[in-house]
Amino acid sequence: MDFLAPTSWAEALECKAAHPDAVAIAGGTDVMVELNFDHRRPPALLDLNRVPELADWALDDGRVRLGAGVPYVRVISELGHLLPGLAMAARTVGSPQIRNRGTVGGNLGAASPAGDSHPALLAAFASVEIGSVRGTREVPVAEFFTGVKRSVLEPDELISAVLVTPPSGPQQFSKIGTRNAMVIAVSAFGFALHPDTRTVGTGIGSAAPTPRPAPEAAAFLAGELEAAGLWSSRGALPATLATEFGRRVRDAAAPIDDVRGSAAYRSHALSVMARRTATWAWDAYRDENRSAA
């Protein structure tokens, strides 16, 4: 097994082009498990730890450009205001040891349906910036995942960054596990209010083969808010509306019975989380108005 350790983004892309079957490794929190358990014996590992271009975040043309190698611990400490939903999700990731090493880019690359970042990124309408020696492309997170642990990444491509517009409204993240300090979610949900476009963002985790949004439920909620004039009046979110939203989110999921829980429970949990997160976010939106007034 070769260990490729490029020290620049250009060199990384050249490595990946020359060794398309090399496995990219960021924090190592997924890949090393597979190596330790002998589940995977790739011909080469491509270590992205020393690529400086991946190691930071910046505001770029009105968007946050989050380098693929930024660990969760920095998302939590530095990006709570710009990526609130993602920061909330990052707090629930693994343990301190994992948060020190794991990255959003690595989470995307692994493309697990249970990845903690994904619901928050979906709700925030984020995009994935993908590079190769052929050039750079941008894929909305909602179109990034193609199946269980599969994504649109071509063999010569690497994830360089996540691009997210700073929020115009409150965001929420909720995860139901099997115990108090959960590590792996039974199901998870990301929610974002986008008052600037009067839209709602949603992201479902651990309840379908891929992380996915609930576009019908989101459009329904945004439309009902519009129809009732609530975006402007910032009146209370009717409980029946929140419950119906939860029901529609649940219907957007396709969970199965597995080691994390029964399909019935995971669907139910999703409806509860969707209802709760929408209510929390809407209450925060109303509070914003009050504090502004």
């Binding site: 260990f3 350790a5 490794i25 924090g27 190592g28 929190t29 090393m32 498990v33 330790n36 590992l45 270590d47 730890n49 301190p96 040891q97 994992i98 020190n100 090493r101």
Partner: peptide, 12 residues
Amino acid sequence: ALVRSCLYPAVR
């Protein structure tokens, strides 16, 4: 920095 050494590639 606190890490799990089982997930930390030794070469790093």
